[in-house]
Nucleic acid binder design. Structure first.
Ligand SMILES: [Zn+2]
Ligand SMILES: [Zn+2]
Ligand SMILES: [Zn+2]
Ligand SMILES: [Zn+2]
Lengths: 304, 304
DNA sequence: ACTGTCCTTTAAAGGTCAGG
DNA sequence: CCTGACCTTTAAAGGACAGT
């Protein structure tokens, strides 16, 4: 039996009922005050209006029976944790991860899947039932549900990219999850299928010169194609890098825009570069061949 | 000219130089290792490949002269901090706050300005010089520069809203900073001007049913209008709250959608609600009068 | 090798308070 | 009052490790 924490990370064990009307109600002083952290001392008390360690600095009408005004160190008011359900597996205690409201297990599953650059194919038609017990049964269906929950592959690696100074905030757009296939459709295995997918993607977003979206299309495509033909084609090209090219340029002048970097690079910079499907870090994973891009970082090639 | 759409600068600074080959290079062990935090001991050393407190768990060929493989606790590699300049005042050491790259002073200035719901008018034509020494001289110009730096008023209060469970991630759109006036234009004082600004805004975003965008328009407008007529009109209406209405509904059936809440409420929940110019928390600051909305939370009314 | 829980670290929001 | 340095708190990313 696995242990489950409710909720996973953050518990706000504080008052549940807030006053209901707007007549002036001032905080009553607790019998004793301390400067210790409000959040770290003693068991939580519910149903009462307990402000623990509020520091009193000023009082009006100090010995009247009327309300007293509390000024000074007022911590953010406690709120009961709203237990949300994981949008992938339905598990309780979900919080926001990579753009979706998911549990800790689905969080780490998504992160690892994106970083490994693996693609999965459901063996049962792409309609596997998903719950806390069955979520690990089919990785293809689980990942598809992650995407449907609006988890963003490009969020994986954000923290590393920020430290390297290469992070640019993601501008979310409506209907972001495009380019992945429906779970009901078969993954493409032909060059034609992949190409049309990319074209559709570019069409939808009208962003032919935006490398970021291009990368997204590749990452998406990668996930749905056979991992064969590997890096066979990489050796045909020189290793000079140039990712600052548009799709049109790549089509007009097919050329490699990176070299392959092994999955487990030997220098940490390379490892991190390999992890990030966004901006600078992705450089090292793309090739343009014959007018189409080929993702090869994870021993992968579209069609061909 | 009323509307000013700021240019979007989402550069994706792609690579200039990539490593040229992928020969295996393994980490060399440092002379001594410790389990203390890599980040907390001593100044970071740059330009060398120093892994500080890596815990060694496994080595291949332990006493050969060849490369050694390091496995286990690998901390994120240190990177030199990139000192950025504040986009408002030019001060060094800026980091990301409310969507802009600004210094600590401009961060807190922006937060307080948004929360106070005050509007400023430059007394010198809106072109005041701005640097670390002069930034406090003109709040109008400073705030305008904050907006130009893409700081978002709706980011203020995000943390409080998340704790209350009312936070919805902001979907950024192109040219988000619309609805504020140029510093070179005069703030509107007529109902006509304000209305046309709002209409333009709705036009641009095609989001007539999106309360969030409506609120943004109001906050923007509020900042550029006379703070007169105060809450005069609030008393004309009952105090029932209802923010779940569309613009069209408000125009078709003018009605109050909130009650006024005093600036310094006596209950912390209301204080926080009053702080947040976004989503649910704003309830308490809006009135619909005669088909137009009026922001009155901070003793404010549009035109009229 | 994959999973999931626990824990650390990071970026950024928010609170405090002395100085003006 | 307003300002800004300094500090705390939060949400979420990332790392580690034991279980399977
Ligand atoms: Zn889940
Ligand atoms: Zn399946
Ligand atoms: Zn500044
Ligand atoms: Zn000015």
């Amino acid at each position: 039996m696995l242990l489950h924490k409710f909720p996973t990370d953050h518990h706000y064990p504080f008052l549940q009922n807030c006053p209901q009307n707007s007549t002036d109600v001032f905080y009553q002083l607790p019998p004793s005050t301390s400067t210790a952290s409000f959040y770290s001392e003693g068991p939580p008390r519910f149903g009462t209006f307990d402000f623990g360690s509020i520091m009193i600095k000023e009082e009006s009408s100090p010995n009247s029976d009327g309300p007293r005004r509390v000024v000074g160190r007022l911590r953010m008011p406690p709120v009961p944790p709203k237990l949300k359900l994981c949008e992938v597996c339905g598990h309780s205690g979900a919080t926001t991860h990579y753009g979706g409201t998911v549990c800790g297990g689905c969080k780490i599953f998504f992160s690892r899947t994106v970083q490994s650059r693996k693609g999965f194919v459901c063996e049962r038609g792409g309609q596997c039932p998903m719950n806390a017990g069955k979520r690990a049964k089919c990785r293809a269906c689980r990942f598809q549900l992650c995407l449907k929950a609006h988890m963003s592959p490009e969020e994986v690696g954000r923290l590393r990219d920020m430290r390297l100074g290469d992070y640019a905030p993601i501008v979310k757009k409506e209907g972001t999850v495009v380019g992945y296939f429906d779970e009901s459709s078969q993954p493409p295995t032909s060059l034609r299928d992949c190409t049309s997918q990319i074209i559709s993607f570019i069409d939808v977003y009208n962003c032919g010169n935006d490398e970021f979206e291009v990368l997204r299309a590749f990452v998406n495509s990668e996930r749905n194609c056979e991992n064969s033909a590997a890096n066979k084609y990489a050796s045909f090209f020189p290793t000079k890098c140039n990712a600052a090219m548009s799709i049109q340029s790549a089509i007009d002048f097919p050329m490699p825009i990176c070299e392959k970097i092994p999955r487990l690079a030997s220098r940490s910079e390379k490892i991190y570069a390999n992890y990030s499907p966004r901006g600078k870090p992705i450089v090292g994973d793309l090739l343009a061949i014959g007018g189409i891009f080929v993702v090869c970082g994870g021993a992968f090639a579209i069609g061909l």
